[in-house]
Design a protein around this nucleic acid. Structure first.
Lengths: 194, 194
DNA sequence: TTGGAGGCTTGACAAATGTCAAGTAAAATT
DNA sequence: AATTTTACTTGACATTTGTCAAGCCTCCAA
């Protein structure tokens, strides 16, 4: 299972990990499995783990005053998930993370990650590439919200992450897009007709 | 002018810069001034500079098919601005950055920043703290868009960045919130009446 | 001083999205 | 397989937001 992570790091950084470095990284992670609907993080608690997904799907979401869920992000195989604000500043999280499907994860703590950055230049490079990508992705997402209608955001999602539409339930897609399930249903229909 | 940046770095990192480190950092930046309406970045070009604002205000925005401007972010004194995707990956930017007021900036290139990270542990710490903060801020912003109405986003802005409302024109605030100027005007009125 | 130009507000109407309720389809559980 | 729960769709209507047009105000430049 660690091989998936190893290959992922090597792909992203275009480097080969020495056996020594690979061992350091391997030792920094613990294997963890979640059944559907189990939680990795509960609102109000501190996010202790950064998780790499080797199988399954998760979501991070908040719950507003009226009890509505708002999904901020999904994570599928090869993605990372955690509430980074809570994780790095040790503050109680406003978010929940739970499994949409049964999942296999490799989890690590903040101390272990920091140590790894010290010990492995490749891992350091890896995290900074991920940070850049995340930066770009969130920028694009904000852009989409301030500029696009629901239909345009759906079309954008179809181009950017078509897997989501095949794999995740409509009500979650709707929440991710900032729409109600009813509106998404109608917008989908309109889009079909074109 | 460099003293503002130096103190900023010291504040954020809770460290004191040695004279040697301070010099390294100082040498990595060049002073640059912009008059109102002058551009730091034009759409379609590569973003060569990361800018620290010592005086004035700027915005980063895109222009859609219909010619509407969409402001992604503002930068006031003590803030940083650049299109980081273009900056670090050397791709043409989809964004424009221009001065809302006359500005004084300290600008640096990607190579210089990377070199600085190598040479100054304090600067390295500084950038990772900023990354974390940026991460948290964009998360909150996405959150606001998927959960809030226009009125709620305005109220949120009043709590988070009250300076914006005093200093920046309404039409830009509207664009930042993803509303038309007309809608913002009405929403403001409603909020006053409460 | 005066004449724009741009920014802000308001009104009337249109389009997009939300809410509530009902019905149907699909999936999970027994 | 039967039952129960959950997800999805649709209709009717309410709310929010956008669009277009007009008017007012302020600031700046001629």
């Amino acid at each position: 299972m660690f091989d998936i992570l190893r290959q992922h790091i090597e792909n992203i950084t275009s480097s080969t990990l020495s056996e020594e470095e690979a061992l350091i990284i391997k030792n920094a992670f613990v294997q963890k499995s979640l059944r559907r609907r189990q939680f990795l993080l509960h609102e109000g608690t501190i996010c202790k783990y950064m998780a790499f997904v080797t199988r399954g799907a998760l979501r991070i979401y908040s719950i507003d005053d009226k009890g509505n869920e708002h999904i901020v992000r999904f994570a599928l195989e090869g993605w990372w998930i955690c509430d980074r604000e809570s994780f790095s500043q040790l503050t109680p999280s406003q978010y929940n993370i739970d499994a949409i499907e049964d999942c296999d994860l490799l989890v690590s703590t903040n101390e272990q990650l920091n140590q790894m950055k010290q010990l492995s230049p490749t891992y350091m490079k890896f995290t900074s590439i991920l940070d850049e990508r995340h930066y770009a992705a969130t920028h694009r997402r904000i852009q989409a919200y301030i500029s696009y209608t629901g239909e345009e955001r759906l079309r954008d999602l179809m181009n950017t992450y078509p897997q989501f539409l095949l794999r995740l339930p409509q009500n979650m897609i709707a929440s991710y897009l900032g729409l109600t399930p009813e509106t998404l249903s109608r917008v989908r229909k309109q889009l079909m007709e074109k």
